[in-house]
């Protein structure tokens, strides 16, 4: 009897091992993710995107127009997007952020410029001060029908100490975001 019991116990352990392996495998991913650092240029189809810098504050001005005062905090990430290749024109990229395991939406999507042009603009997020450390910007180019698209995860390199220092310094500052103007790629 004991022999049978240990046999079935072993069978249950084997089942649990396979279930665990299945859970670890998870679902088939819909995007191919590449990790990029702040200041590093990365290509997404025909365009190159570089995250230059970031600022935080509580009051937001967009193009010198007062938008509002946040109950938490604004984060503006300055990015440069340059389109140089003859690829299909994309009107919008989906921009988001991830911090502490949850995703955040930007106030507006990125518009890549037309071929031959580059634009430097600010992408603004409204987020909790706790979410500043480890914030990662995600940029995804996705059509209505998609299978496995490329996605860039741009790590802003904000350590916990850096976040704490910056919060102390500029928590209630004013953020001036610009939607940028078109310039020709030199």
């Amino acid at each position: 009897m004991r022999g049978r019991a240990t046999q079935w116990l072993l069978a249950v352990v084997a089942c649990l091992a396979m279930i665990g392996l299945h859970a670890f495998t998870g679902e088939f991913p819909q995007e191919s993710v590449r990790q990029v650092q702040l200041g590093q240029a990365a290509r997404l189809y025909g365009s190159t995107i570089t995250a230059n810098s970031w600022t935080i504050g509580q009051v937001l001005y967009e193009d010198d127009r007062f938008v509002g005062r946040s109950g938490v905090m604004f984060l503006a990430v300055n990015v440069t997007v340059a389109t140089d290749s003859p690829q299909e024109l994309r009107s919008e990229w989906q921009v988001g952020g991830t911090a502490n395991g949850h995703t955040l939406a930007a106030r507006a999507d990125l518009r890549p410029p037309q071929p031959g042009f580059t634009r430097t603009q600010d992408v603004v997020f409204e987020l909790n001060p706790d979410d500043l450390a480890g914030f990662t910007l995600t940029v995804l180019d996705r059509a209505p029908i998609f299978a496995f698209d490329p996605q860039l995860n741009i790590d802003l390199g904000i350590t916990a100490q850096h976040a704490a220092d910056e919060l102390e310094r500029a928590r209630y500052a004013t953020v001036r975001a610009a939607s940028g103007s078109i310039q020709v790629i030199r």
């Binding site: 072993l10 069978a11 352990v13 084997a14 089942c15 091992a17 396979m18 392996l21 299945h22 495998t25 088939f28 991913p29 995007e31 191919s32 189809y45 299909e88 059509a143 029908i145 998609f146 299978a147 496995f148 698209d149 490329p150 996605q151």
Partner: peptide
């Protein structure tokens, strides 16, 4: 238990093989 382990290996192996192919080719439009 032996059957579950073998069949599960084939199922998981199939999934990882597909992913290896897709990741190897990278992200592309539909």
């Amino acid at each position: 238990a032996a059957f579950i382990l073998c069949y599960g290996t084939i199922t998981i192996g199939r999934e990882w093989l597909m992913r290896a192919f897709y990741t190897g080719l990278g992200g592309h439009p539909a």
